[in-house]
Amino acid sequence: MSARPPLRHDSVTIACPVCGGNFPLSGRRTYCSDACRALAYRRRHDIGDILQSQFQSHIDASPSMSVGVVVNDPSENNAA
């Protein structure tokens, strides 16, 4: 009976620290895709809180807008 090869061999594949998926080792690459790399950057720099505070200041500075809704009663149109 032959020994099974390991499912993950560190010299061949590495795990992405963001999604956990395995990908082939290539140079200094750390993440499996640009999407995982960008997500790791956003997590490290906490961009979400920064953007939310910037947008909230714009929302607070803009004049409030109200929207009116007009509803016509269809029975009034038939009565004429």
Rank of each mutant, 00 (worst) to 15 (best):
R28S: 15
A3L: 03
S11N: 13
A38I: 10
D46W: 00
S62I: 03
A35W: 06
A3D: 03
S26Q: 15
H9P: 02
V69Y: 11
R29E: 13
L25A: 14
V67N: 11
N72C: 14
C32D: 05
A3W: 00
C36K: 01
S57E: 02
R8L: 11
Y31T: 14
I47T: 03
Y41K: 10
C16H: 05
R42W: 00
S53C: 04
A15L: 13
P24V: 13
I14N: 05
A79W: 04
V71Y: 13
C19E: 01
S26K: 15
V70S: 11
C32S: 06
N72K: 13
S53F: 03
H58V: 03
R4K: 07
C32H: 05
N77H: 07
V71W: 09
A40W: 07
I14W: 00
M1V: 06
G68I: 12
M1D: 05
M65K: 14
P74Y: 07
S57F: 00
V18L: 09
D60P: 01
A40S: 14
S33C: 14
P74F: 05
L39R: 11
A35L: 14
I14D: 04
H45E: 04
D60M: 01
D10V: 06
R8W: 06
S33V: 11
N22G: 11
N22F: 13
L51C: 00
C32V: 08
P74R: 08
A15K: 12
T30R: 15
S2G: 07
R43L: 02
G20K: 09
C16E: 03
F55L: 12
F23A: 08
G27S: 13
S2T: 07
L25W: 03
R8P: 01
Q52R: 10
S66L: 07
S57C: 00
M1L: 08
P74D: 12
A15W: 01
